[in-house]
Structure formats: C-alpha cells, structure tokens
Simulated assay, not measured.
Amino acid sequence: MKLSPELAALKFIAEYFSDCDGALLSGSVVRGEETSTSDLDIVIFQKDLPNAYRETFYAFDWPIEVFVHNFASYNQFFESDRNRARASLARMIAEGKIIREHDFIQKVKKEAEELLEAGPEPWSEETIQSKRYMVTDVLDDFIGAENPKEELWIANALADLIHEFILRTNQQWLGSSKWVYRALLAFNPMFAEKFYEAFHTYYRTGEKKLIIALIDEVLAPFGGRLAEGYSAGK
C-alpha cells in the first residue's frame, strides 16, 4: 500500500536530507486537493547550503519535488514572488506542514504569511492604462476574427489578460494553469464563476457575447476600452 504523504515525506527526509535543519511538506496533499498525479512538494532548509536549488525525485512510490534553501536564499525568491505577483515559494511555506522542526521555520512561515497578506506590488497608473490598451486591442481582434483557428488563440490570450487585469488592479496574487481559476476564486467567487461561464460557453459553442460583456465590466471602472488617444513613450 502506498505510504501517506506525510509518512513518505518523513522517510524521504530521513534518507535523502538527514542533515537538513528544517523541512515543510506543502502543495495539494496538504490542502486536501491531491489527485492521482499529485506529487509531494517539500521545502528544505539547510543552513550551510551555498545556494538554493530545485530537484525532482521518485521515492516511496511518490514523485517528489524539493526546493532547497539556506537561511538567506529564500529572501530573493520572496522578492521575486512579490515583483511577479505570483506567490510561489511564499505560498508553499505559508501553507506548509512542518515535518522537521527548527526555530527558523517559524520565522520564515511568519514572513511568508505576512507577504501573502500584503499582496503584490500595486500597478502604477501608467501600467493600468497600458494594460487597458492591450486588453482593448486583443478584444478588437477577437470581435473581428473570422478564422476560428486564430480566434481560439485570441480567446486564450484574453483569458490570461483579463485574469491579470482584474487581479492586479485589486492587488491580488496571480495564478497560472490550474491556479488561474483558484486565484480568481480566492479574490471573488462570483466573478470566478462568471469568468468560467464566459470562456466555457465560448469554447463549447463559439459564442463571444459573454466574454465581451465580461471584459467591458472589468474595464468599466477604469474608463472602459482604450484605443484612441492612448500614447506611450511620447
């Protein structure tokens, strides 16, 4: 029988990183969202490590991703998380379950939780206008598209742009892949459902109206669509 995530993680640490100073088990198995293809995400701290690295293993019937840091390297990744508005390492540490205790782990978890609470760097007015113009430009392509093979990829671009716009203008963390919907859901469940319905309807039927209405709703508080009069670098 396959070992439980926590027991597999404990055995893995004992065998592969026995001299580490602290470790956390994170990811879907901690959130109770694991699937048949889930792996174990383990964040490891080793005080004397020269540099951070990531490595993949298969052990104890589990695929395992390890993120190994010293007592300072995580700061650079936290800063990158904030600048990119994607809380990767910070989220893993904040939600992680401690499987090897160390006083330092509590300190880092607190920092991660504070970073998540603070949110990413806010967009400047210039950035908002630039992104508003980009959304409008791609929306025009979508409305006017006549080739369904091209139109599909325009829709994909719009999904990414509008997810970014609504979250960043509200100083929320972004997602990617399955985390796009999760990020929207964490921000506003009603909007997440509206977003899903708009794009799901389009992908099933080719009907564009819900996507167009959704984008106009998102842009409205910022002046709506932007094309004529926009200038950059003038």
Results as ranks from 00 to 15, higher is better:
139 L>Y: 04
179 W>E: 15
208 K>L: 06
225 R>I: 01
146 E>N: 11
221 P>N: 05
121 E>H: 09
135 V>Q: 01
210 L>G: 00
138 V>Y: 01
217 E>T: 13
181 Y>T: 10
167 L>R: 12
174 L>A: 01
177 S>N: 12
146 E>V: 12
102 H>N: 14
157 A>S: 13
129 Q>G: 04
202 Y>I: 07
143 I>H: 02
125 E>L: 14
123 W>V: 03
218 V>L: 07
234 K>R: 14
120 P>R: 03
140 D>Q: 03
189 P>R: 06
120 P>Y: 13
176 S>P: 00
167 L>I: 10
118 A>F: 00
112 A>F: 12
227 A>K: 12
222 F>R: 07
188 N>E: 09
105 I>N: 05
165 F>W: 06
117 E>K: 12
172 Q>V: 06
233 G>R: 05
115 L>H: 09
181 Y>R: 05
198 A>V: 09
181 Y>E: 05
203 Y>Q: 02
232 A>P: 13
205 T>L: 10
187 F>T: 01
205 T>Y: 00
158 L>T: 03
168 R>M: 02
115 L>R: 03
192 A>E: 06
130 S>Q: 13
150 E>P: 11
147 N>F: 13
147 N>T: 10
197 E>L: 11
112 A>N: 10
146 E>P: 01
141 D>C: 10
229 G>K: 08
136 T>M: 03
114 E>M: 08
190 M>H: 07
223 G>P: 05
115 L>W: 04
177 S>T: 07
177 S>I: 00
135 V>I: 13
188 N>A: 04
157 A>D: 14
140 D>K: 03
188 N>Y: 01
187 F>G: 10
116 L>E: 12
194 K>Q: 03
229 G>W: 00
206 G>C: 07
162 I>W: 02
138 V>W: 01
207 E>Y: 11
181 Y>L: 11
126 E>N: 14
126 E>D: 11
101 E>H: 14
233 G>V: 05
206 G>T: 08
192 A>D: 04
170 N>K: 08
168 R>F: 09
192 A>H: 02
186 A>E: 14
109 K>Q: 13
206 G>A: 11
207 E>L: 12
159 A>R: 15
230 Y>N: 00
179 W>M: 15
225 R>V: 09
224 G>I: 07
184 L>E: 04
167 L>E: 08
196 Y>N: 01
172 Q>S: 11
218 V>I: 12
158 L>K: 07
149 K>T: 15
126 E>T: 15
220 A>R: 06
159 A>H: 12
133 Y>Q: 10
169 T>G: 03
134 M>I: 09
232 A>Y: 15
225 R>Q: 06
231 S>P: 11
120 P>S: 08
198 A>I: 06
131 K>C: 08
206 G>I: 10
229 G>S: 02
189 P>H: 01
161 L>T: 01
176 S>W: 12
130 S>R: 14
194 K>H: 06
112 A>K: 13
117 E>P: 09
201 T>G: 06
